[in-house]
C-alpha cells in the first residue's frame, strides 16, 4: 500500500509540513516494499487551488492513504473522489509518522478547513 506525506525536506527525518497543498515536497512510501521516493510539489507556486493540484498528484501516484496535519475542503473533495484516506499526522518526523501509521495508531482526519485562499487584495 502506498502512502504519502507532505514534508519540509527530502528526508525521512524531515518534519511533516504544516501545509498540504503548499508543502515543498511529498514523500511517497510503499508499506509492502518499504521503498520511498520524494517529489517536488509543483502546486507550491499555484495562484490558487494548490490543494486540488496537490491532491491530483497524490491520486495519480496511486496513493491509498495521505498523512497530513490538515487538509482543505477542495483537496478533501478530490481525495475522497480518488478514494484516498486522509489520516491526521502527529508532530514529529516523516519516519515516526510512517511507524505510527503501520502500527495502526493514526486516526482519520475529520476536519477539512475551508482554505487559506490568498485573497485578491
Amino acid at each position: 500500500m502506498k502512502i504519502a506525506i507532505p514534508v519540509d525536506e527530502k528526508s525521512l527525518k524531515s518534519s511533516v509540513c504544516s501545509s498540504f497543498g503548499r508543502a515543498p515536497y511529498f514523500l511517497f512510501y510503499n508499506t509492502v516494499t518499504k521503498k520511498d521516493y520524494f517529489l517536488d510539489n509543483r502546486a507550491v507556486v499555484s495562484q490558487g487551488g494548490a490543494g486540488i493540484r496537490a491532491s491530483q498528484v497524490i491520486a495519480d501516484h496511486g496513493v491509498k492513504a495521505l498523512l497530513t496535519p490538515q487538509c482543505g475542503e477542495n483537496a478533501g473533495k478530490v481525495l475522497s473522489k480518488a478514494e484516498v484516506l486522509v489520516y491526521k499526522s502527529i508532530p514529529g518526523t516523516a519516519q515516526q509518522n510512517i511507524d505510527e501509521f503501520e502500527a495502526d495508531r493514526l486516526i482519520l482526519l475529520n476536519e477539512f478547513h475551508s482554505g487559506f485562499h490568498s485573497h485578491e487584495k
Partner: peptide, 23 residues
C-alpha cells in the same frame, strides 16, 4: 484542461474530469 487551468479549477479523478465551479 487540467494542465492548462492556472487556478486548478479542474481535476481528473477515476477517469472523470471534475470542475470546481467556485475556483
Amino acid at each position: 484542461c487540467v494542465e492548462f487551468c492556472k487556478y486548478n479549477a479542474l481535476a481528473f479523478i477515476k477517469n472523470k474530469p471534475f470542475v470546481f465551479e467556485e475556483i
